[in-house]
């Protein structure tokens, strides 16, 4: 492995964008924790395909001589000194929380597992 743009997260440049299947859309919905009915999947899959086609047209303009980029400005090493900066009080941090308890954010029961 060397420094440089990694193959796996380089935006893939495809000449023709394959159509998203209904199963793929369902998978995406699952990942986003959105519960979609079959009817909604039927409705949304073509819409997502339209978005993908639009992106594909941009990719068509960029030829192989244009490197993929993740940042618009070619700069590196923007660092911050390891110096403490005052942050928020717990009250400020929790001000917009829908629910709280003991200065902690209260969230609905978590299904699944810790990462």
């Amino acid at each position: 492995m060397t420094g440089g743009i990694g193959a796996q997260i380089r935006p893939t440049r495809l000449s023709a964008m394959p159509e998203l299947s209904r199963d793929e859309v369902r998978h995406l919905a699952d990942l986003a924790r959105i519960d979609l009915s079959d009817a909604e999947l039927e409705h949304l899959a073509p819409q997502l395909n339209v978005i993908l086609e639009s992106v594909a047209s941009i990719q068509g303009v960029a030829g192989p001589d244009v490197p993929a980029t993740s940042h618009p400005i070619p700069m590196t090493n923007v660092f911050r000194e390891d110096v403490v900066v005052p942050g928020l009080t717990p009250q400020q941090a929790l001000a917009a929380a829908p629910a709280q308890e003991d200065d902690k954010f209260s969230v609905p029961r978590i299904l699944g597992d810790e990462q």
Binding site: V83, V85, G87, L88, D103
Partner: peptide, 16 residues
């Protein structure tokens, strides 16, 4: 961020 990297104090005191 510049929050103290200290864990174990009063909840949500080292946040921004």
């Amino acid at each position: 961020c510049g929050c103290p990297a200290v864990f174990g104090g009063a909840p949500n005191t080292n946040v921004c």
